[in-house]
Amino acid sequence: MKLTALLISLCLVLFVTSLVTGTTPVSVWHSFASLFATDGSPMSVVMQQIRLPRALLAVMIGASLGVSGAAMQGYLRNPLAEPGLIGVSAAAGLGAVLALQTGLAAAFALALPLSALLAALIAVAMILSLAGPGGAALTLILAGIAISALASAFTSLVLNLSPNPFAAAEIVFWMLGSLADRSFAHVWLALPFMAVGWVLLGSLGRGLDALTLGEDAAAAMGVRLTRLRLALVIGTAACVGAGTAVAGSIGFVGLVVPHVLRPFVGGQPSRLLWASALGGAAMVLAADIAVRVALPDRDLKLGVLMALVGAPLFLHLIYKTRGTLQ
């Protein structure tokens, strides 16, 4: 419980920091006053329509990545698993890239995230039909890898055939992942999917705990593995698909956060789910503050920073635990 309180306070502090961080030089107090102002002043527009949705999206996406990473690691009983494993993020990326390439993204505002969501849905349908209802965890991973590879191949094809360097650059920059210039439209688009994902993944605690003993023992303890897997795939896809659709691909959160927090929850998968949701939210909030503070005028991408920080952190963890890993 101490951990939960700590993580919640951390998220709150970072959320507030995120709201008052930006290029417009105004006092913290004035920022907050503008958040609730109804006078339509420029600062109130900045606070209410730019910074608030940005901070909210950071929380939503971080929580989604954290909880789905924890669920995926719990299901596969492997600390190297991450939400991108089932191929949904790569597919959502392809959907977004197609929207950019065809000019659909320029035609109306939400074309890009909608196209990404559609591609994510198709990927889930493919995974479920490929991996079948009763197959083993290995089939799921293999199907995910295959779909991931296919989506990446198509994305490369689009880049390859892109008519001019500007179009290619736009695609590449989008793929780096960012929360800049997002609006409440993005929040409302992603929220229903993510909420479904959170509920589905949040319900897996008991089953994931039982899976600590392996699939056979878990099944004999009353866990319905087929149903658990269906909830896992759909929940992860809803979370990650919606996240990728509104912010591009942001890696490492789903891998690193559960890994960092596992010792603090006594290794228990059910407790790790919620801790990772909070931890993921804190990590994305922190990273999104860092991109604005580090290089305010260069539009440093969130996904880039996350990998820059996440990879060394992960290396450090491996270095620290290399003696205890078997």
């Binding site: 009983r77 008991r206 705990d209 039982a210 899976l211 600590t212 003993l213 392996g214 056979d216 023992a217 004999a220 303890m221 009353g222 866990v223 596992r262 010792p263 006594g266 290794g267 228990q268 998968p269």
Partner: peptide
């Protein structure tokens, strides 16, 4: 069935570094 019969598979799998007490408590899930 989970309340009628306990099953101890041959593969001795303990996936996560949980405490012995917590692991034994998993038997109470059903």
């Amino acid at each position: 069935r989970a309340r009628a019969c306990a099953w101890l598979p041959q593969a001795r799998e303990i996936a996560w570094p949980v405490s012995v007490e917590k692991l034994v408590r998993l038997g109470r899930l059903p």
